[in-house]
Amino acid sequence: MPSTFDTVANIISETCDIPRDTIKPESHAINDLGIDSLDFLDIAFAIDKAFGIKMPLEQWTQEVNDGKATTEQYFQLNNLCTRIDELVAAKGA
């Protein structure tokens, strides 16, 4: 079974036509990979479907806009994968 990171990286690679080997756990989706908000909707759709979750993007964006969180907390891929794992675990709880 692929890791959360591998699944997310494959989704990003296929959705945004980014070479898979350039996508690292420490990559920032926006700052390093240049993914814009529209492409991120496609990625979010694929992630939501793949993991059977609903990533709370509105809440995350609000927290960033309010200065309560940094973009790294949600959009650096290793952190994003941790959030996804938490959502999957919460779903099964």
């Binding site: 979010a44 759709f45 609903k54 709370p56």
Partner: peptide
């Protein structure tokens, strides 16, 4: 198809 957070398909 899907109601996401801040988007729908």
């Amino acid at each position: 198809l899907h109601e996401g957070s801040g988007y729908a398909v």
